[in-house]
Structure formats: C-alpha cells, structure tokens
C-alpha cells in the first residue's frame, strides 16, 4: 500500500513538465526515504535524478519499496487536470498495475480521481559516485534559461568556462559567435539573485545546447540553479525543490576529435 499526500500539488505538476521532454518512460521508486526517479534519455547522453523526500509530504505511507513504471507524457496529461492549488495524493495497492492520482481543491469542494495504467520498464540504474567538482556556479535559474535560449539561436553547442573572472558561456554557428560572461555578484538585494562562483581550478567543457535547454524546463521549480563542473565528469545542473529535495540533470560533454 502506497499513499503520498502532497499539499503543494503544483510541485509535482512542475516536476513532470521539467522531465517529460527528456525521458518518455521511467520507474518512480518509492521507499522510506522518499519518492524518486533516475532515468536516462534514449541516447544515454543525459540523466535526470529526482528526489522528493518523505518528510516533504503531509502524509507518506509506503509499506514496502515499490517501483512504478510510468509513461511521463501520460502522467503529465493527468496532472495537468489538477488545479495549481490542489492537493495531490498518489495511491497504489501492492501488486496493482495502476496508480491513482487524487486531486482535492483547497476548500475540499471538488475531489477527482484519475487512474493510470502502469507499465513494465527495464531501466538500468547508473551508479553515480560522489565527486569533487572543479567549479560550482550558482546563479538565478531564469538567467541561465535566458542564456541557453539566446545561445541556441546562434549555435548548437555551448562552451562553459569558469575562471576567476567569472563564468563564460560561448557558442559559434554559421551566422557568427556569442560570448556571455557572468561575474560573481553577491551584492544583490536578494540572495536568489546572486551569482556565486566557487572555483578550485579553471575548467572549460562543451555541451549540446539542446539538452541544456531541455533542463531549463525545471526553471519554475527554483529561483536558482547550481551548475557543477569537472573536467573528468558530466556536468550537473541542479534545481532544488523547496524543503523537499531536488531535480538533477547530468549531461556528458562533447570532446574535440
């Protein structure tokens, strides 16, 4: 028996919108820790890892570990039927081949049940070791989204370079080139508007902008984004989900032949 009641149902709606472009089908894993997912895109270039901790739910019952295979576009279709202020409850019985999403309006005058068929998904879990990153950049998520969108109108790849001067996003295409430099800026009114750069050593890596743009679908989940770079590792683009957990995107770099 599984029953997870999320008062801020809009978070789950935003999570689905953030990942459904990257991944079609995925297993949601439910354990005492929380509601989680790890899935790769079909070309094994990008990976999304989601965690919604059990403490973040108003009610969290998960009698035994359960893995539920879902088509994310179908799940998004159902969650779009929930109001932004609705409380969402996810329910499943042991051994059942369906999951139920229950939507309650804030004043309890409307209650809806949507039952979705589950699917068997063979998913390969990747072991992601804890790593030391050469550079960690925290910046406003909307700013990062704007940069990725702007650069993708010029080129297909972005070079992200971190030096003590700041973080530089560069691209090149048929019509020309573009460079956007963001300097560390802690003297802002609100902490979420700051750009903070922690650098152990300079790093420069190249990534496909198509994936970066897909990650920025998570922008509504968090005011800030953290980009962790190391020359020997995929980049991690992390959006914290207030009080509940995170959504992390990993992207393998491109290398010069």
């Amino acid at each position: 028996m599984l029953e997870l009641r999320l008062v801020q149902g809009s978070l789950l709606k935003k999570v689905l919108e953030a990942i459904r472009e990257l991944v079609n089908d995925a297993n949601f894993d439910c354990s005492a820790t929380g509601f989680s997912l790890q899935a790769m895109d079909s070309s094994h270039v990008a990976l999304v890892a989601l965690l919604l901790r059990s403490e973040g739910f108003e009610h969290y019952r998960c009698d035994r570990n359960l893995s539920m295979g879902m088509n994310l576009n179908n799940m998004a279709k159902m969650l779009r039927c929930a109001g932004n202020d609705d409380i969402i409850t996810i329910k499943a019985d042991d051994g059942s081949d369906t999951v139920t999403f229950m939507f309650e309006s804030p004043n309890q005058d409307k209650i809806a049940d949507f039952e979705m068929k589950l699917m068997d998904i063979d998913s390969e879990h990747l072991g992601i070791p804890d790593a030391e990153y050469h550079a960690i950049v925290r910046m406003p998520s909307a700013e990062f989204a704007r940069i990725c969108k702007d650069l993708s109108s010029i080129g297909d790849t972005v070079v992200i370079s971190v030096t003590k001067e700041g973080v530089k996003f560069s691209t090149a295409g048929d019509i020309g080139t573009a460079n956007i430099v963001c300097r560390q800026n802690k003297t802002v009114d609100k902490p979420e508007e700051a750009t903070v750069i922690e650098m152990q050593e300079p790093v420069s890596l190249t990534f496909a902008l198509r994936y970066m743009n897909s990650f920025t679908k998570a922008t509504p989940l968090s005011e800030t984004v953290t980009i962790s770079l190391s020359s020997e590792l995929p980049v991690v683009v992390e959006y914290k989900i207030a009080d509940m957990g995170y959504i992390r995107f990993y992207l393998a770099p491109k290398i010069e032949e």
Binding site: M40, L47, L126, G127, A208, L233, P234, A252, K254, E257
Partner: peptide, 14 residues
C-alpha cells in the same frame, strides 16, 4: 569535429 560522449563513459551500471 566534436564527439558526444555517453554517460557510460563516466558512470557504471548498478
């Protein structure tokens, strides 16, 4: 020419 690496080059399957 640039080559796109895959995640398996960095992470191992459990």
């Amino acid at each position: 020419h640039e080559t796109q690496l895959r995640l398996e080059a960095f992470f191992t399957f459990n």
